[in-house]
Design a protein around this nucleic acid. Structure first.
Lengths: 340, 340
DNA sequence: CTGTTAGCGCTTTCAG
DNA sequence: CTGAAAGCGCTAACAG
């Protein structure tokens, strides 16, 4: 196998006798005499010519590629977002560069620099950091950024997310309506994640409005991880005064909590009621079917792409927009109706 | 915010009075007078200079970037591989370009072309196609490719995978040792996936060696999907002569089968025993804990990276190597010991 | 509509 | 060790 050097625009110039400019014009959809068009097309076919996007990018400073940075590619939540984002971008003939931040702020910052190096036209970020510092390189270079699912504490970026606080409020209300009063929460907290904090506030809102005080032991705030969810649920189940219901505020924590329940030997909803977040087929995998907050992930992904491409198109500076969607609460059998 | 044009090597030339060549040499780790070194470093810092990898790539024809193409980024199996691959590459200072084939051969072929355009130095592919045609562009250009988890029917590529046939054999043997005789299989078949077919053969081997004939109704071969797993399990559970055990040969099919079991109201292992594939925390999520074939995903990923980087390093053509690892079978409570 | 001429930002001979 | 000059493959004026 010989290492064939790909054909260049010059080879097709040689073959057709036309000038570089004409060929380039054709390649970019410009008007060319039908006769020349035919010859160029023939040469392209014959030489298997394909545009060298690198060279093109060097001069146009555009790559028709957007970067997508997710906090962890191991998370099914992100995998699902990536899937929808990829579809939406493909439809617009944009390429996609996926980066995995491994839940690490350092790697996240590195990813942004990497994408800047690759000269992406814009990026969609599901961030791990809560501060916007890591996005500075993009901001400096005027590369549009859209945040997805998670906003930043000091945000001045476009963002697509759900109304976390009221969604959490509604979810907890559902528990209250079923006469639960001892309701615990497992949550990614302020220090770890802004989105988690908003959901936590929604929980507190609902409890306060119901006139309930929440014992310290019922507030489990920590990492956004399966491990934290599992550990917290274990502890809740061992409490003297066990809660009658638990609200889990993201997918990983929901997974961990289910695992803890399973190992405990207790049953849901007989021994404890559960309300989770971000379905992702989980509700069908475990018995009983779980009550779940489900975010409109497809719509969110598509909206993020739409906003990003808008901004890539128009060069004018625009005010950051925040799109807030609402989530639905899927029914299940994991919440018991208490009498009283 | 002004759209700052990034500093170029020329700006630092202006600042230091040195020539482009000297600066370039410094940037690439060459020897430069200590005095000049200091001045260059100062200028770089002052101007926030960063190499334009696009321009560099144009001349070197190297990007220090590898592409990874997975059949679906929505699959946790792939997410996990991506995570390990990313880590291994980062360690070697390589960038990663992730592409999602959406289980579609057309998109897969498009992804390969996209990566060729991006001039990746090599690629790791978990393919959806079973024929190697889609890899032709890479082959033609001499870009190294390593297949992961799935090989191709007409393969002439490096590949890292497990010994699917004997692994399946061992798994089914475990069922046989527990005195199961009515063992069904749910499998991605030949037409859809070569790996699945190998596992199917291992199943048949074990059954044959045990002197058992397998009724047609116990052989469920079809798509590699949750839906197919679910549908197949539903059908198996409804059979007049219900199997006592089911072997599920990949992650998605395992998920689907568990879902079908849950909705059926039957219990595992009392009503039916189950043996799945590719754990990925599933075994801890469902009750009872599942018996599972678990592939050494981390080792596989790292080996694939190692082989790829080797080939990127040496320019000489090498014979394709096939690394075959072995999987372990994790114990659980989903297989009943039958008396007889 | 077509061709000529400059570059994009960098590396790489090849002299000095 | 350093500098001048040539080009990687393409696009973008500007004339014709």
């Amino acid at each position: 196998m010989t290492q064939i050097m790909p054909a260049t625009i010059r080879d097709i110039k040689a073959k057709t006798g036309l000038s570089l400019a004409t060929i380039s014009k054709y390649l970019n959809g410009g008007n060319v005499l039908p006769e020349n068009k035919v010859r160029i097309e023939a040469a392209i076919k014959e030489l298997h010519y394909e545009v060298n996007e690198i060279a093109r990018g060097l001069v146009t400073n555009k790559t028709r590629t957007v970067g997508v940075v997710v906090y962890s590619v191991e998370s099914l939540f992100n995998g699902t977002l990536l899937h929808y984002i990829g579809n939406a971008l493909r439809k617009e003939k944009y390429g996609i560069l996926i980066c995995d931040s491994c839940n690490d702020e350092g790697i996240e910052a590195e990813n942004i620099r990497f994408l800047m190096n690759k000269k992406v036209d814009g990026m969609i970020v599901v961030p791990v950091s809560r501060q916007s510092g890591f996005l500075q390189p993009a901001k400096d270079a005027g590369v549009p950024v859209v945040l997805l699912d998670r906003s930043l504490r000091d945000a001045e970026f476009d963002c697509v997310k759900i109304n976390n606080r009221t969604t959490a409020f509604r979810a907890v209300s559902l528990l209250l309506e079923n006469n639960h009063k001892k309701i615990a929460v497992i949550c990614a907290d302020d220090r770890n994640e802004w989105t988690g904090y908003e959901r936590y506030l929604g929980y507190l809102d609902a409890m306060e409005q119901a006139g309930l005080t929440v014992p310290e032991a019922y507030r489990r705030t920590g990492a956004h991880s399966i491990e934290f969810g599992q550990k917290s649920m274990r502890e809740l189940l061992r409490l003297e005064e066990r809660p009658t219901a638990v609200f889990m505020t993201n997918y990983e924590i929901t997974l961990g909590a289910v695992m803890a329940l399973n190992e405990s030997g207790m049953r849901c909803p007989e021994d404890i009621s559960m309300l989770g977040f971000d379905d992702l087929i989980l509700s069908h995998l475990v018995k009983p079917q779980m009550c779940m907050v489900v975010q409109p992930m497809k719509e969110m992904s598509e909206k993020a792409v739409e906003i990003l491409l808008d901004h890539i198109g128009s060069k004018k500076e625009e005010m950051p927009v925040e799109i807030v969607m609402s989530a639905r609460i899927a029914q299940g059998d994991s919440v018991a109706r208490l009498t009283s």
